[in-house]
Nucleic acid binder design. Structure first.
Lengths: 217, 217
DNA sequence: CGAACGAGTCAACACGGTGTCGAGTTACGC
DNA sequence: GCGTAACTCGACACCGTGTTGACTCGTTCG
């Protein structure tokens, strides 16, 4: 119940026994999951729905995945890979101005999640109920925070940004903001920033937090 | 299933029929819920746990509350009332300096949730699964955003803060940041700001976002 | 060829949770 | 002492999860 019973095979997530071959079924399950997630919440999707959608019975589903959450994790692994690629590109090619660099990073982050918005929302939902999802998120988040903190320190070192809050704390706060603001924008529940403005708004806060020195207030 | 069957009585949340008298039971359920929430997640608490904890049977529980979520909502109503009081005090008595004003607002926000951290965490958890919780949160959040946006516009009007992003968008972004950062700090999952530093970090970002003009980056 | 093996499949089951119904029991006013 | 309304709970219907064991294939190898 607490610890997830993952199998020993090297592929890790997914299949129960050992080797591949019913790949189509597995793919069908993943596709069904992504499709259903764009219609309703994860909690409202049963294993039976996924199985039927993939043209198999419920017990057969368990041959491919150990639970509904394992399907989500599988889907998430892919998005994480995409997001990492996007981040690497952004941080790889340096920009014309600092503003543009940050702008590109935030836009990339936004874009990655926008493309998979159903997954993004399900992710947030599952995070509170599943330890593995939480762990995956933590590791992704940690990587971003680290990269941002390094970037902030870089800007301070070259004299472009003034000293201020510890770079890591600042990076955590700003990355958290991005996450929460984008989530609200995607779901549209409660007060949220319009999708067209969200990158600009986030960028504005990032720039003032990183470059704006405020002392005499 | 989708719409929650709330009763017609004026008190709204809680009791099923009409008048009070088994108040002790009701209180016992609420107390049990708050106690159990400090030990485990909402999802891991069953109606049976709440009933047993209050010394009644499961069906009897349903005499007092229409579901587990209704109990949470009841608890939340109280915290919201507290938070509103705290906010009113903060925004009521004007501070020595602008910095101190914002500092007090953020600290009040922090303090309210810190005191009820188990509830705060459960709240975030339930928000993704329950429409009523989501609606309650939205209304609370909207009030804060409104108040912050007004404060920001006030500062701009008196010339203390430079013009910049639309005040409402800025307020949404910053309030969202507070929410997410505090949540992470309270749960301690993933990268988070230390509890002792969190108010300072948030304050720093708020001040630079509201007062720091950043143009030439 | 045919036995045997393993991947893939599913009906049937055990379990645990939710919410309801109806038959009680108690307490209090009349 | 009796009616009635608050309150209580055993038993039930329902749904979702995850498991078991028996079955069907296709392949491979003696």
């Amino acid at each position: 119940m607490s610890a997830a019973p993952r199998e020993g095979s090297s592929t890790g997530r997914g299949r129960r026994p050992v080797r591949p071959s019913g790949d189509d079924r597995e793919l069908a399950i993943l596709a069904t999951a992504e499709r259903l997630l764009s219609e309703r919440s994860l909690a409202a999707i049963s294993v039976d729905d996924l199985a039927r959608g993939a043209g198999i019975s419920r017990p057969t589903f368990y041959f491919y995945f150990s639970s509904k959450d394992a399907v989500l994790l599988s889907l998430l692994d892919r998005v994480v890979a995409e997001a990492d690629t996007a981040m690497r590109e952004v941080f790889g090619a340096p920009a014309a101005s600092a503003r543009e660099g940050w702008q590109r990073a935030i836009a990339a982050y936004y874009e990655t999640f926008r493309v998979h918005r159903a997954l993004t929302v399900a992710w947030a939902e599952a995070r509170s109920s599943n330890a593995e999802v939480r762990a995956l998120w933590s590791s992704v988040f940690e990587r971003w925070v680290q990269q941002c903190a390094d970037a902030i320190e870089g800007e301070r070192a070259r004299g472009a940004a003034p000293p201020g809050l510890p770079a890591r704390d600042l990076a955590i706060a700003l990355t958290s903001m991005n996450e929460r603001v984008l989530y609200a924008t995607f779901t549209g529940d409660g007060p949220s920033v319009a999708e067209a403005d969200v990158v600009d708004v986030l960028l504005g806060v990032w720039l003032s937090a990183v470059y704006g020195a405020v002392d005499g207030v």
